[in-house]
């Protein structure tokens, strides 16, 4: 939250934190509930990962203050994201490289 660290700001943040905490608990219940609904294998995986990503965004964005951080941290994380995507892309390419797989 960068410079928003006055006592008044912190008090506002605390309300936000509690809201996010409740959202995360609801997200957990939704994840479990969604797994019991048969949407087809791929849709189940996509939905679970989508909910997990939303929860991850809430934790990283607000608990870890990433929505209002300094540029240096964003630079580091952009690099991390690029490398992470590269890693997953290599994994997927490796899969399609196996004869007879990936169809």
């Amino acid at each position: 939250m960068g410079d928003g660290h006055s006592k008044e700001d912190i008090k506002k943040h605390i309300k936000l934190y509690i809201g996010i905490f409740i959202a995360l608990l609801i997200g957990t219940v939704l994840t479990v509930a969604a797994a019991y609904v048969d949407l087809g294998h791929k849709a189940n995986i996509a939905l679970a990962l989508f909910i997990a990503s939303v929860k991850a965004f809430l934790v990283a964005g607000f608990f870890m203050h990433l929505t209002t951080e300094k540029k240096t941290i964003y630079t580091i994380l952009v690099c991390t994201v690029i490398f992470f995507i590269g890693l997953m892309a290599l994994t997927i390419m490796a899969h399609y490289d196996v004869p007879g797989a990936g169809h």
Partner: peptide
């Protein structure tokens, strides 16, 4: 699954308490 769900809730709870610990210090 019930145990796993409960443990997820435990970890999420610890995430709010850890940020509250920091906020408490900010408030003195």
């Amino acid at each position: 699954i019930p145990i796993g769900t409960f443990n997820t809730a435990v970890l999420i709870s610890s995430s709010i308490t850890v940020v509250m610990a920091w906020a408490s210090l900010k408030l003195g």
